[in-house]
Design a protein around this nucleic acid. Sequence first.
DNA 1: GCCCTACCTTGACGCAAATCAAGGCTGCTG
DNA 2: CAGCAGCCTTGATTTGCGTCAAGGTAGGGC
Lengths: 252, 252
Amino acid sequence: MTVRLADTGDRIVLKPCIHDYQVNCGNCRLNSICLPLALESDDIEQLDNIIERSKPMQKGQHLYREGDGFKSVFAVRSGAMKAYKTTDDGREQVTGFYFPGEILGMDGISNNLHASSAKALETAAVCEIPFSSLEKLSAMMPSLQRHFFQLMSREITEDQQLITLLSKNSADERVASLMLSISARNSKRKLSATQFRLPMSRVDIGNYLGLTVETVSRVFSRMQKLEILQVDNKEIKILDIPGLQKMANVTG
Amino acid sequence: MTVRLADTGDRIVLKPCIHDYQVNCGNCRLNSICLPLALESDDIEQLDNIIERSKPMQKGQHLYREGDGFKSVFAVRSGAMKAYKTTDDGREQVTGFYFPGEILGMDGISNNLHASSAKALETAAVCEIPFSSLEKLSAMMPSLQRHFFQLMSREITEDQQLITLLSKNSADERVASLMLSISARNSKRKLSATQFRLPMSRVDIGNYLGLTVETVSRVFSRMQKLEILQVDNKEIKILDIPGLQKMANVTG
DNA sequence: GCCCTACCTTGACGCAAATCAAGGCTGCTG
DNA sequence: CAGCAGCCTTGATTTGCGTCAAGGTAGGGC
């Protein structure tokens, strides 16, 4: 018998979940890349106490929407999320994709309102970190304060990378860079750097990279013809990493 | 004549400057939009003690360069700065323009290295805020910690605005948006919202907006022909704000 | 004052990616 | 397992902006 919750539309319903026994920051396999990074185990326990776990989400469900009151930041525990803004004329700008261990929602701090929306690209689980508790804890734990400053700063440098990509690079280079970024983030999580399933659609990729679906699709076809990668719908296999780097026009 | 000399131990020796007598956060006319915002006067004094003032800079001079060790963030006191990254193939991506009261350098926190370079667009003065002191003070002053989180978050939302602009908007819309942004920031500083001198070159504008000089120049000509603004080299006079907003394609 | 350099403007042309259009695939759902 | 809706691919055409080229203008230094 499925314990499937009543159709909740878009809102999150917190219910205990069978998979959710005794997960905590101390035993989470993501703790070396997530917020607890660099904390002592005593400190991890304190952080753990403020975190609300178990937010299972279905594909398409919103975690928060642009304009919602800001209360928490979130860590992805499984699945993948996208953050996006809707422009005045109704088009969608994807501002980031978030994989397990990554933090989202920090853009809401400045005005106490979420500046973007976040939605699950597939079945996902997130940890909610109430910001007021995080602030208090940060004031007491210098290494947590430092780490959170660093996380925000990383978000800034990543956004600036994207700005450069959008401003200066061709369609080929943009798509190649995204594939390399996903590959690198996968290996950080001890997953295959060369074979993975894209959680997002071609439209999402286009909306992230400032391209149309058609262009994204054509770039994938081109890469396949050049035997740089194998594309089977959302399944990606990178055949030639140096070739991909060359296409992305990056050193290293 | 009182010449204030910062007693900073083994820090960089700062040349005394005739304009620099007794400037402090408490009496700075920018304090309502800068870092001291929302601090009690006792707290302002403490913040004031960690800040090193008087860094007069000449046009073209670097404040820091990409790859430099990160030690401080900076507040612009007068003049204007640009932050930029150099791409692998040697081109320049301007990531932001900074006017008096605005903070730059926060992208260096994540790796303890500056992720971009910063250079003066004209004669300028900045306040240096050593980050380690700021961290310590933040842990003790909740409102300062909060405010600095907000400043970083604002940098994120602004970068995301630029991402959207680059990804979705035409040349006309990009230039119009920049003019509106400068106009709004001017009025925040109690300067004219409709008449100002651009501190940056057309090349810088292009490198910021992802356009070539020629395109920027053509957009200005077009705006002039439409009597939306009057352009005399770097002197700008906005004649028709609603028209400019319409051109920028923004609501409000 | 005059030169030199850096910056800005304008025009002609070409190209990469958008747009328009059509058809195929995939995976839900009944 | 059939039908349907959403997603993806491919081709033809258009277009906005980049590139190339030439000439104008402003301001700093001698």
